[in-house]
Simulated assay, not measured.
Amino acid sequence: MTAPILEARGLSIAFGGLRAVDNVSFTVARNRITTIIGPNGAGKSTLFNLISGALRPRGGQVLIEGVDQTGQPPYRMQAAGLARSFQITNLFFELSVGENLRLASQILEPWSLALRPVSASHAALARVDELLQRFSLKDKASFRVSALSHGEQRRLEVALALACKPKVLLLDEPTQGMSHGDTQDTAALIKSLANDVTVLLIEHDIGLVMSLSDHVIVMHQGQKLAEGAPADIRNNPAVQAAYLGHP
C-alpha cells in the first residue's frame, strides 16, 4: 500500500482560550484531491497555516513523505515539496503576468548563479512558458496583473504556487469570488493538476467539492468532524446538521 505523501498527526493550536485547531489528524494520498470543508471559523485556514509552516503547532506533527517537518518555516516546507496559495489574492499587481511567473520560477535556478542576467535563467524561463501555456495565459504574458479579470488573477496565483514544482499543493479557496464560468474552468484545471501534484484544498462550494474531490475532511469548531468519500460525507447526519444545514 502506498504511504501517504502528507500526514497530520494530532495538530493543535490555541489562541488564548480558543482552541482553533484541536487534535486534528488525517492523511493525504498521493496524486489525489483532498478537500477540507467546514463553516466559517471551523479552523480550516489555521490548519493550512500549521501545515505550511506559517504557524508553529503547540502539539502534533506534520510529515511529508514520512519525514517529520513540524514547525519548519515556509521556505523549508517549500524545499520539502510543499507550496500553497492564499485566500486573499497575493500578487505583484504592477508587474506583468510573465514577470510574476518568472520571479516565482527563479527558485529553480542555483543560488550560486543568482547574479546572472535574467535572460540566462533558462530553467526559470522554461517554467514560465510551461505555466503560461497550461493556465491559458500565453496571450496575457505582457499584461499588468492589475489589468486581469478576477478569475485570471486567481488562476495566476495557482500557477505561481506551482512554479517551484511542488509535490503537494495547498489551495485556500481558489474559486472565491469567481463567476460560475470561471469556477467551472478552475475546477477542471485543478482536476488536471492531480496528474502531477497532490492537491489539498479548502473550498466552500459544496457542489464543486462533491464533483472534484477524491476525499473530503470536515472540520467543525477546530476539530475533525468526519472524513471519507464525497458520497459518504454528503449522507453523514452529523455533517448535515453541522455544515449542510439540515439533519
Rank of each mutant, 00 (worst) to 15 (best):
A187F: 06
G41C: 06
A161D: 04
L137T: 03
R84T: 07
H204R: 06
T70Y: 04
V199W: 09
I190S: 08
D139R: 13
Q69N: 08
R155H: 03
L170P: 02
D214C: 07
N31G: 11
I64V: 14
R58F: 07
E157H: 04
Q240F: 00
N40E: 12
I36V: 13
S149K: 10
L47E: 12
N195M: 00
A161P: 04
A3V: 05
V145Q: 08
L108I: 04
S179M: 07
E65G: 15
T198L: 08
K165Y: 01
L169S: 11
P74A: 01
L101W: 09
A231F: 11
L131S: 01
Q61I: 00
I107R: 12
L162F: 04
V145A: 10
S146P: 02
L55F: 12
R102K: 12
Q223G: 15
L103K: 02
D205G: 07
A42R: 07
V216F: 09
L18M: 09
P174R: 01
G38K: 00
P174F: 02
E94V: 09
L208P: 03
R144G: 12
L189A: 06
Q223N: 13
L108M: 04
D68K: 05
A79Y: 04
E227K: 07
S121R: 14
P4C: 05
N49A: 10
V197Y: 11
V21G: 08
Q221C: 00
I233V: 07
E227T: 09
T186R: 02
G10A: 12
T198A: 09
S52I: 05
I217H: 05
E65I: 11
S213Q: 02
F15R: 11
V158L: 05
L171G: 08
R134S: 14
L148G: 10
E157S: 03
S142V: 12
A238C: 05
L95R: 08
R58H: 15
K44Q: 02
I190K: 07
G81D: 14
M178Y: 11
A229P: 01
A123N: 14
A231K: 15
Q184I: 11
A126N: 12
A83T: 12
S192K: 02
